[in-house]
Design a binder for these strands. Structure first.
Lengths: 335, 335
DNA sequence: CCGTGTTTTTGAATCGTTTCATGAACGGAT
DNA sequence: ATCCGTTCATGAAACGATTCAAAAACACGG
């Protein structure tokens, strides 16, 4: 069965293809009676527009791509959710690509997206090596907005959250509750987020004259938190609070402490980072630093459309959001 | 700046467009020397294939769409991950669409996907009302595989997990550990998954002469579990174990019990369903029924490609997988 | 140098829309 | 009846790749 095209519809309705096209795209420009006839033919034949042909003619697609490091990470799903409504209300479509933190996968996606002539791109690059690839896109007139990686100089718009401020928030929260010995759990420090969060924490501790000890982990996952906390337990001058670079790490720490009979928050307080859904759902609800994730997505999409609209007049903007501390049971005690 | 097309490349390399096309698609058919010249021109001009034109000619795209109920749900992300490698190794691309359990969003996606002439579709439909829309696609020669909703009769391939068996597994596990009074927490029972899991549980309890009480919830979320368990706590003949229709519910139950000082598993055992990552990460690691999610995705993709390859010879297949019980601390005690 | 067979290359047709200059149809004013 | 201004409809020319029959180039034996 061959697919039916506008030509078939035109024939069935006794009009020209141009008219069918007008019915679809500028219905007000075609006479009432004709329009009805064409619509009837469309329904009758079950005609469906061919998007490839449309795009070929238009020169670009209506797709905005979002390239994320991990689709399963709630951070990114929320960013996507934030961006979607804006894109859709602008008549666009969102497509999500998962690089899985793998440069090769990311590259493959970028190639494909360029072949598809996407309208624009929101991306959290895997690492600096992506820069040249991304610039290739902008060179071909595909606007790009960087998400949560706006640190360095770069010729793009970007949105990000101030991780140093987040680190400060967490540390200040703990210091205010009387903690004088704090542990930072997280790593590797090559990840800018980790480094920044640590940096903010360090500043505050230094200013307050509070002891800060680092437990470096190989990654930001559950296991890492559990192991780090176990390393900490043997010690006699054990910190009375831990700040984890990530909620997963914090949940690992929580389980580690619980299983060794250390009471949270009575014997050890915990602050996490990201405020994932499970932070509130933990056996001891977790205090955490929340980032305005949906807004990050919304703003990124907005910047993209601004850039498209402004054309050559455009000058890049870099928007930085401030995080917020959500206090829960895991830090509910003053020492 | 206008995008460069094959014509430009052809001119630059001093050959015809047909030859350029051959270099890209059947390089072995073009002379060594010519090929080199064309490739040089491509690199030189920064030429990028136009996928719309390609697809227009080809009549279909290389995209396999997966329409899920919730991208943030680990169940679906794993299904997607399972399907991806197979699709990509077949030269396809995966695109994920989130219906958000909303029929209207789902419909919009289906319309768009049909306009894009996708290669095929894996979908977990929002409800039965989707059926007619989906059949429209198959009517237009777009093969569809149903994921985890293969219950009724339907003219498609499908993959699913046997939820009744899952319910039986959970109940049997609890009965074997000596529990004689069990609670089922979950709802609404209109959801086939909930109904099936309950059904399996009921069978086993009935056969074993074990008392089963249902705490119906309005949804399958954290809050629901917490509230259900609180309703249960007041009672004197309190069940000694709960089977939750879902891990989120189970985590809610766990938090509810913990906060009211009820020890898990000593005073109340818990079994969840889905074995999400956080099940193992809970303060008391959660026993849970695991579904072979990635395999579900893999198989769905396989069925899709089979259908494409077999053409009219194809007869639909319905594959049902068996779930597995993962025992952890939350049921670690014999009564 | 010719015929034959093989390897390369060509160029036109095609896919299904959109766009736009042109033309037809019609009504009303003169 | 003629002319003019609207309102609608038309049909051909893009858009950029792929395909394929046919032409060209080449190799080689006689």
């Amino acid at each position: 069965m061959t697919t039916t095209s506008m030509k078939d519809v035109a024939r069935a309705a006794g009009v020209s293809v141009g008219t069918v096209s007008n019915v679809l795209n500028r219905p007000e420009a075609v006479a009432e009676e004709t329009r009805a006839r064409v619509l009837a033919a469309i329904a009758d034949l079950g005609y469906v527009r061919n998007d490839s042909a449309r795009q070929l003619r238009a020169g670009r697609s209506r797709t905005v791509a979002i390239v994320v490091l991990d689709v399963a990470n709630p951070f990114f799903t929320d960013v996507v959710r934030g961006a979607e409504p804006l894109v859709e209300s602008a008549g666009g479509v969102v497509t999500v690509c998962d690089s899985g933190e793998d440069v090769r996968r990311e590259r493959r996606h970028l190639e494909l997206l360029e072949e598809q002539r996407v309208l624009g791109l929101l991306i959290t690059p895997v690492d600096d090596s992506s820069a040249s690839w991304i610039e290739r896109l902008t060179g071909h007139d595909i606007p790009v907005v960087l998400v949560d990686r706006g640190a360095g100089r770069h010729p793009h718009c970007s949105v990000a959250v101030d991780d140093v401020a987040g680190g400060r928030l967490a540390a200040r929260h703990l210091v205010e509750r009387g903690h004088r010995r704090i542990a930072f759990i997280g790593g590797p420090s090559a990840i800018p987020q980790v480094a920044d969060r640590y940096e903010g924490c360090r500043e505050v501790c230094e200013d307050a004259g509070v002891e800060l000890e680092v437990f470096a982990t190989p990654g930001l996952n559950f296991q890492a938190g559990r192991e780090a906390v176990e390393a900490m337990l043997g010690r006699e001058d054990r910190p009375t609070a831990v700040f984890c670079a990530n909620d997963l790490v914090a949940l690992g720490a929580l389980q580690g402490l619980t299983m060794h009979g250390v009471k949270v928050p009575q014997e050890c307080a915990i602050v996490g980072y990201d405020d994932i859904d499970f932070a509130a759902a933990a056996a001891v609800p977790l205090s955490s630093v929340r980032q305005p994730r949906a807004q990050l997505g919304r703003t990124a999409a907005q910047l993209l459309f601004d850039e498209i609209a402004e054309g050559t007049e455009h000058t890049h903007r870099n928007v930085v959001f401030q995080p917020e501390l959500i206090a829960r049971a895991s830090t509910a005690l003053e020492l």
